[in-house]
Write a protein that binds this DNA or RNA. Structure first.
Lengths: 120, 120, 120, 120
DNA sequence: GTGGTCTAGACCACA
DNA sequence: GTGGTCTAGACCACG
């Protein structure tokens, strides 16, 4: 399960992975988040690293902590929708950047995205 | 310079990196490719690994070898254009896959690409 | 077992030797190919060299790899027949070249091949 | 110029090479044979090895020695023709052996030689 | 145990 | 100095 990019802090990559769980609905609003130790094992990282990722997610308002019961996904659907929008934006901007990297101009890149044929 | 993803063969990543140099025009057709050993140093890999990448690129028709003079980017513009098209396709499909990963359906993903606002 | 011609890359000679195993039927279609390391020992070469030969044979479509189970001779009889035809052609052309080297003209060489008496 | 097969005595290979010079007419009957030392240099071998090859050729009746003047190609055209015939025979038998090695039967091999289309 | 990958270091031909 | 080849030895993923 550990498949991290070199030289990018692991906890940032963890944050992203978990954000995907949440915005994609695999972890619906209000769901209980698995215990840190379990998550750490699943992702093959040190519990401290996972802890840090969850902390940041909490500061981001995507999860909240109930002192004794554990962590839960926020019930604030708007917040989730916003994050999804952000990630979506990043994906698209990233794609455009890569297209520019292939020698296309910004305009060409935009055009390619808009006109591609949805094969597969 | 070494910034490789974990668990993806380095030589494959090298191939991709060099393809970008070629299709983007940073290495124009007919240009001399830097010597294996120099490229290997730049990318922080073993010369043999770089050699393998170049070998595959040669089989792919993107570069050719002149025994003692070095390697050169192909002058076949069509070949280059084809490869650019392939890479472009991969970028877009990848973006769609990531969007689906965020919980969007295929249709929504396509729509997002087509309608996004291009101001960054 | 190592009996290689000087100044011809060993891996090319390995390729040829293995092609003969396959087209001659000593390694029938679908047969499991011995493990790289074993072949390397048999031929008295480094495993990497043998690996390279097998890689090229795979690109040639004569063998295929099953990740953990090993390599196998292709089941594509047409492909095998084609290769046999190629090798056969090379043998004949080679014979003609040698005959020309003995001072015969192309016509004489052809005639000699066609008219030789088959008792050995 | 040194391009010898491994594990076959070099002097035998030299004999063959020189026989080809003679039977092909590149060294016509009665021609003076270059001095041993010069031949040895050309072929990249030790003069003693070359000497041995020439000795055998002399016993074979293909060259003869004039005490002070050097060595000469025999003027016996029949002898030369015979040797050419021998070499020719060897080439053809060798080709048949290789074809059998590709999985053809003796009959098929003979047929292939007789019916091949003289392309090139 | 299989194949796949990577590194380090060496030697060679060519010009 | 270029590319090409070879060896030795190591580590990894997959089952």
């Amino acid at each position: 399960m550990n498949d991290f990019k070199a030289h990018i802090p692991i906890y940032l990559q963890l944050i992203n992975a978990i954000k995907q769980f949440i915005v994609s609905g695999r972890w619906p609003p209000g769901t209980r988040v698995p215990p840190v130790r379990e998550l750490a094992t699943q992702f093959g990282v040190n519990p401290n690293t996972m802890q840090r990722a969850l902390l940041e997610l909490e500061r981001d308002g995507l999860i909240f902590t109930e002192r004794t019961a554990g962590r839960f996904v926020t019930k604030d659907n708007d917040r989730i929708a916003n994050v999804r929008q952000e990630l979506c934006q990043k994906v698209i901007e990233n794609a455009i950047a890569e297209l520019k990297n292939l020698g296309f101009t910004e305009q060409e890149a935009n055009l390619l995205l808009k006109t591609h044929h949805s094969g597969s």
